[in-house]
Design a protein around this nucleic acid. Structure first.
Lengths: 339, 339
DNA sequence: CTGAAAGCGCTTACAG
DNA sequence: CTGAAAGCGCTTACAG
């Protein structure tokens, strides 16, 4: 007789179902070697009691927690949150929970810190956001520690089971196509920082499209930023001070594109009449800046959901998807060039 | 002899220190009833072995996890992330980890969902962000489940041990003072939605300051929004279409203030020459909009850090703080009224 | 101040 | 297909 108020344990289920704990355990873990009638009987008792296996006990016995980790380093806040929402979509109604771990990619101890974290928390698996998702040493660490992992990236950085990827290169090419169709010829690039795969992919997409259209990109029409707002102002300032200045700018992310808006304003250039601007991310700033910004949106929430499923239920159909196309979001920061 | 590669357990420590497991446990848990020499000896072995108690085992034995939960419903992404950073500052180098749980405050099942979550995960405590931090039923739930909690709020919603609060009311009064000093008299209010304590506090601060300056607020100069961008456009549009339109607007958050910028632009009014605007939050949009927005910044990261400490180490000096003053951040969206 | 025994609620070989 | 025993790595009364 257990006290009426206590939450039921595996023993209660076993006793009421007239089987051993082990058999109940088999039901919980969906063991194949199990008589159908036994399973039905046990499941009835489980439902009746409202029994839920204690995660702490399972974690101890299995040496593995039912926790998904989210590793990120300071990217776009909205992206992190949208990804989290997607993960939640996937873990809702499951026994899993989400542990968030911001890390510092500039720290020499980052890998060691994460190693300790994984050792201690015995995570079921981790989800890794860019840019640290591009760190192969980190993926290797997960592998050697027996911790599942899925990376989010701008390209196929890993096998399908370990990645949710967008098609940055293609979609940036499409953005350039769009500008060219409107009549732009002097199109400048504000690229992202060295060492970011996203910066690389977006630049390659840009260059490929320019070449496809037979357009040249003079060196001064290509400036590097660091993905932050101020660097966008600086980069765009240089571009707009060129005598034969560009009529359109593609910036590798929205923050830098927002900086380009500022640089234009400072010079009393109108967007889009004097200057068309396209960003990347579709972050809140894109919709709220004036005029609303044409940008590239990626399905971050869906990526988060799929990434979590890859960890929890790799055989699920929804977990098979690894390609998540980004799309051009047309707003008012792009128009035909003047004259 | 345990295998050399295995991570050390409490048994290894006990054996090498020549004491019982229980004594090691006492050292880990800083029991007072402990001979000083014994403690030093055990601590030496712990350091030597690099022993770290297994959190899963402790969780099972203690019926309590070393996890801090962050409960939030969709507020400003940057606020959530800054708060997370603060929590991380506090849990770094501890055994604690942070579990994030977005919830839906409009769901009738919210409380039940959270109850199940707390039951299952046996959290050490939860941190609750606004607006759900204002839900007293939720605080009551935590209390009855024996789960620690700390709320973040715009005012003293709870006892000092259960809250990190800003001073929204005062700081908004100061914002109004600032506008009045510059010469503004027709100052309008875009207030936040019903049921948000922050909206209430900010409105009260606004009204108190107006009254203190002997200024009246005609009903048409006070419009309600829902904290979202579009509602800011709508509210400001109404205000700016008044014949004797305001020379300054205070909006209860940055998103609505950004909407006010749009409404001004649509009417070809210049900020700040034709219209001064002040927001609240100091979110990224505030710094990136043109012209950069004067707003109120609150020390979200510090609040997150203190909130986590209140849960983990309530006696720490840093955990005593519960007041976190917000401050006016002056940028370029405010100037003297024209003429 | 310290220890031997039992227990937290599960799962893992090993039998049968 | 099913079960009795031992174990995961800690802590909690209870003695002494």
């Amino acid at each position: 007789m257990s006290k009426p108020n206590k939450t039921p344990t595996i023993n209660d289920v076993a006793r009421l179902a007239g089987v051993s704990k082990k058999t109940v355990s088999r039901v919980i873990n969906r063991s194949a070697l199990l008589n159908e009638d036994t399973r039905i009987k046990v499941e009835a008792v489980i439902a009746d009691l409202g029994y839920v296996p204690n995660p702490q006990a399972r974690a101890l016995a299995l040496r593995r927690n039912f926790l998904l980790g989210l590793l990120h380093d300071n990217p776009n806040a909205q992206t992190v949150l949208n990804f989290q929402e997607g993960v939640l979509d996937a873990i809702r109604e499951t026994e899993f929970a989400l542990v968030v771990r911001p890390v510092d990619r500039h720290s020499p101890r980052m890998i060691d810190d994460i190693r300790r974290f994984l050792e201690l928390q015995r995570l079921y698996g981790v989800l890794i956001l860019p840019p640290i998702s591009e760190n192969d040493a980190l993926a290797e660490l997960c592998h050697e520690m027996g911790c599942g992992y899925v990376r989010m990236g701008s390209a196929m950085l890993d096998d399908a089971e370990h990645i949710v990827a967008s098609n940055d290169r293609e979609v940036v090419s499409q953005a350039v196509d769009y500008l060219v169709e409107l009549g732009h010829r002097r199109i400048a690039l504000i690229e992202g920082p060295e060492g970011f795969r996203s910066a690389f992919e977006r630049r390659e997409g840009f260059l490929a499209a320019m070449q496809a259209h037979g357009l040249t990109l003079p060196p001064e029409m290509r400036v590097q930023g660091n993905y932050r707002f101020d660097s966008g102002i600086a980069a765009a300032s240089r571009l707009l001070d060129i005598a034969d200045r560009p009529t359109a700018i593609f910036a590798s992310n929205d923050e830098m594109a927002a900086g380009a808006f500022h640089a234009a304003r400072q010079r009393e250039l109108k967007v889009p009449d004097d200057l068309s601007i396209i960003g990347f991310d579709d972050s809140p700033i894109a919709a709220h800046i004036w005029p609303p910004m044409t940008t590239v949106g990626w399905p971050v929430r869906e990526m988060g959901r799929a990434a979590a499923l890859k960890l929890m239920a790799p055989t699920d159909e929804a977990a098979q998807q690894y390609r998540f196309p980004a799309t051009l979001v047309k707003r008012q920061s792009v128009g035909p060039p003047r004259g």
